[in-house]
Each structure stands twice: as structure tokens, then as C-alpha cells.
């Protein structure tokens, strides 16, 4: 199935990806973010909060946004 993944950790570009049917949010996070800790990210499916074991559906929009972003001085 095809999903729209928006990874705001780093580049922040949106991309369509293919994942096996029945993939959960936690599995996709592990696949895309490696050893990153899920609690450091705001994960939304179709702009809604989601549990880790939620199965993703074809056409879902998943956004992964870090909760800690370091600013700077100009």
C-alpha cells in the first residue's frame, strides 16, 4: 500500500512510500527512524494522534515531527 510520509526530522520533505499491508505505526517508525526514541517525536496519522499499534491504511498521511528543535541566534 502507498502512504505519504512527512519526515520533519532533517530535510522535512514529503514522500510517497510503499509499505506492506498491516504495517503498524511503530513498525514504520522503526523502519524509517532507526534507533530514534518515539517519545521524542510527535507522530500523527492523518493529522490525528495515534497509538503505536495502529495499523496503517492505504493513502494514510503520516507525519513525524521532533519535539525538540534547537534554535540559535542569527
Amino acid at each position: 500500500m502507498k502512504l505519504l510520509l512527512i519526515n520533519n526530522d532533517g530535510g522535512g520533505f514529503a514522500d510517497y512510500i510503499d509499505v506492506p499491508s498491516g504495517t503498524t505505526v511503530a513498525q514504520l517508525f522503526k523502519q524509517k527512524m532507526g534507533d530514534a526514541v518515539a517519545r521524542d517525536y510527535l507522530i500523527r496519522v492523518n493529522r490525528q494522534p495515534c497509538p503505536p499499534n495502529q495499523c496503517l491504511q492505504d493513502g494514510d498521511r503520516i507525519s513525524i515531527t521532533p519535539t525538540k528543535i534547537e534554535g540559535a541566534r542569527s
Binding site: N8, G12, F13, L42, S63, E70
Partner: peptide, 25 residues
Amino acid sequence: VCEGEGQTVIRRSLEQGRLFDFFTM
């Protein structure tokens, strides 16, 4: 705000109209 490491992603979210991502970031 000086966006530091968030500069690219914040600007990208604005360019694409992803306002929820923009405000949360």
C-alpha cells in the same frame, strides 16, 4: 525566531502549507 537546526523543515512546512507541522515545530 532564529530557527537554527529547524530552519529547513520549518520553511519547508510553510512552503507546502503544512500549517500544523509549522505551528507544532
